[in-house]
């Protein structure tokens, strides 16, 4: 599960996002942790389950709420070499969404495949 890299041992980190973006602080905090963690050059993946898929939807406009719209930041993840984003297929479908409704390219996976991805990690952080 681990491999040697130039800077030491790179572990496989999975950040699991289960909450909608603005009803709580979890989504924003998770993204902050991902960005901070990315500096350590680990093997990072993000998973979006349940209401977590709402974090990625296009067209978010938070001016009326006067809070930060953090959905554009997902598009910067590529600069941080974070490119593995997995989205639960059933969650998207139950919410009337498809991959085309999301701000970044993702891999849409079944719950079974998602379970396999989780199984392959060294560290899982859930938000």
């Amino acid at each position: 599960m681990t491999e040697e890299s130039a800077g030491g041992i790179a572990k496989k980190f999975l950040y699991v996002n289960r909450r909608a973006p603005y009803g709580s602080i979890y989504g924003l905090e998770s993204l902050e942790v991902v960005l901070i963690g990315a500096a350590f050059e680990q093997d990072v993946s993000l998973a979006f389950l349940g209401d977590g898929v709402f974090q990625l939807t296009k067209g978010q406009d938070t001016k009326g709420l006067e809070v930060k719209n953090f959905s554009p930041t997902f598009r910067a993840l590529e600069d941080y070499d974070v490119t593995k984003l997995y989205v639960e297929k059933e969650a998207l479908e139950a919410r009337g969404l498809s991959a085309a409704d999301l701000v970044v390219p993702v891999e849409v996976v079944s719950a079974q495949r998602m379970a396999e991805i989780m199984e392959a990690q060294d560290v899982i952080l859930s938000f």
Partner: peptide, 17 residues
Amino acid sequence: YYDEYQIAPAVRVLTKA
């Protein structure tokens, strides 16, 4: 960069970009 992504990039990202 901030207008586009709503973050100030880390130094490694800034250098590359």
